[in-house]
């Protein structure tokens, strides 16, 4: 009875963690620029890994295994955000600009806006060009994401 209950609770934690990890991985692929991708990845670093490790703690019972899992979880919860912050700071220092939705208003169809978008694109480290900027503007017009 207790074993069954423990398995159910552990399974809930594990499945929730796996769901968060999958959502984060999809977000890493789908998000438009580096900083939003960092947001998706931090979901994996904290919530996904945390929930899976808590689920494993329930399966491990009171033993040395759980102590190791607690250490692993504490370490990841401290170091994940620190690494993410360092990554974002280094990216900003290297001149990568966040892709703001409301900063360059004109991409709604102005010729001047295309030049500005191209500039942003070079700052992002991607090949600049009217074609690329046009596709970016088209993507923005199509709606969020």
């Amino acid at each position: 009875m207790i074993d069954l209950l423990r398995d159910i609770v552990a399974g809930l934690f594990l499945v929730a963690g796996a769901g968060f990890i999958l959502v984060g991985a999809i977000g890493i692929n789908r998000m438009p620029d580096l900083f939003t991708r960092i947001h998706a990845a931090s979901l994996i670093d904290t919530t996904g890994v945390g929930l899976v490790l808590v689920g494993l703690m329930f399966l491990g019972g009171f033993s040395l295994v759980t102590v190791k899992l607690v250490f692993l979880l504490a370490f990841l919860l401290f170091m994940g955000p620190v690494a993410t912050h360092a990554l974002a700071a280094a990216a900003l220092h290297a001149g990568i600009k966040p892709d703001l939705a409301d900063a360059p208003k004109p991409p709604r169809g102005g010729k001047a806006a295309n030049g500005k978008a191209a500039n942003d694109r070079t700052a992002n480290g991607k090949p600049a060009g009217a074609k690329a900027a046009g596709s970016r503007a088209a993507a923005r017009k199509a709606g969020p994401l």
Binding site: I21, G24, A25, I28, L34, R37, I38, A41, I44, D45, G48, V49, V52, L53, L56, L59, G60, L69, L72, L76, G80, A83, T84, L87, A90, A91, A94, I96, N124, G125, K126
Partner: peptide
């Protein structure tokens, strides 16, 4: 990933996934 930081971000997440794979495989 277009920039180095994208690749580094993905590498960091892959490392986290590897930790989970190790723990889950052990169990």
């Amino acid at each position: 990933g277009p920039t180095t930081f994208d690749r580094l971000l993905a590498a960091n997440s892959i490392g986290n996934g590897a930790i989970l794979v190790l723990a889950l495989f052990g169990f």
